[in-house]
Simulated scan of single mutants.
Amino acid sequence: MSETPTNGGEGPLMLLSAGFSDWLASADTSISLTTYQAGRLFFIGRKADGGVRAHERLIEQCQGLWTDGQSLWTSGLYMLWRFENVLRKGETTPAGANRKFVPVEGRVVGRTDVHDIGLGEIDGARRPIFVNTLFNCLATVSDTASFRPLWRPKFISALAAEDRCHLNGLAMDGTQPAYVTAVSRSDVADGWRDRRHDGGVVIDVASSEIVASGFSMPHSPRLYDGKLWLLNSGTGEFGTLDTADGRFTPVCFCPGYARGLAFIGRHAVIGLSRPRHGGTFSGLAIDERLAEKDTVARCGLVIVDIDSGNVLEWLRFEHTIGELYDVAVLPGVRSAEAIGFKSNDIQREITVEQR
């Protein structure tokens, strides 16, 4: 595939496979993603002329992401933010976007290291359910406190701000949390770092039982097409997990630290990061796999055919951004953008609830 450089007039330089824009058009989707160290909420869509447009907003330590195309939740350093689309059907922004996300709610949850986010039903209301990594639990927002704990692994003996097992990934089954991933089953402060190579587990939330183990820093469990999909990040593998016997079946190798997973049709959108050498990501099996394939880790996206395991299209960030955390697809959305917190737009964008 040939490379097409673009920055869409906004954001860091990207390299794209030649068919990336055509894939967005054929899938009738755009993509949203979050970066971690670079602190950005990104939207990648199409321009009117068929080119690729990237739009970004700065949100410090932006990680978890959930959207249904109308509402959007994402996390920041110590916040949970909810955005809502204010465009009606057929409306577009001056730049041609047919989604305009405006921040309407901010929840101060403290530096709890929020990872994956889902939207569930709690006490008859739809509320965010998020992985509270610092406290090793699933949690939701509270009207009187930083958060309300909902569930924690049974090997975690106490609710404490110690990041013992590095709980990170959440697979929702409709409005209910179904499976979570953790880097280990450690019950001591920061104990997970000692088990990065093979201590990873997948846990059934309903039963609290570990259904599979032996992973290297697993992330992004997702239920799709009747299967549980998973990123075994420390080995660079994307695959499916049989929860009955705990068998993991790789579908393809990802040329980067894989984190962030979404599906549309028969395709998976997978986020890739460059490892932090000398730190959390160092010394993992993926280093050897990359060397065997005579390549280096990339930061960007790969579009994978889930039936064949072939990479159909790709996107790479060439500078500024080295890590992604989460990705989401927006079906039926050509292009999306969001209002920033420090621009005059946020003062002037006033909407009236329609009943």
Rank of each mutant, 00 (worst) to 15 (best):
R107I: 13
C299K: 04
P177D: 01
G283P: 08
V183M: 13
S273I: 10
Q347A: 13
G50Y: 05
A125P: 01
I264T: 12
P250E: 02
S32E: 09
R259V: 08
S2D: 13
W314F: 14
E318D: 14
A160H: 04
G260P: 01
S157R: 11
T243G: 07
R107Q: 14
H166Q: 04
S17L: 09
M14Q: 09
G265N: 06
S343W: 13
A268R: 01
T280F: 15
G279C: 08
L170E: 00
R195F: 15
L228S: 07
D198M: 06
G278R: 04
R46I: 01
F317W: 13
T74F: 08
G214S: 06
P275M: 03
G214E: 06
T351K: 05
V201A: 06
E3Q: 15
R276P: 09
V352G: 06
D173R: 05
H115D: 11
L13R: 10
V327A: 07
G8E: 06
T93R: 11
I203K: 03
T295N: 02
D204E: 14
G45Y: 00
G45E: 00
L272T: 02
F263Q: 01
I117P: 01
F341L: 11
P94C: 10
L33R: 07
D198A: 14
A297E: 00
T35Y: 03
D68E: 05
A178W: 01
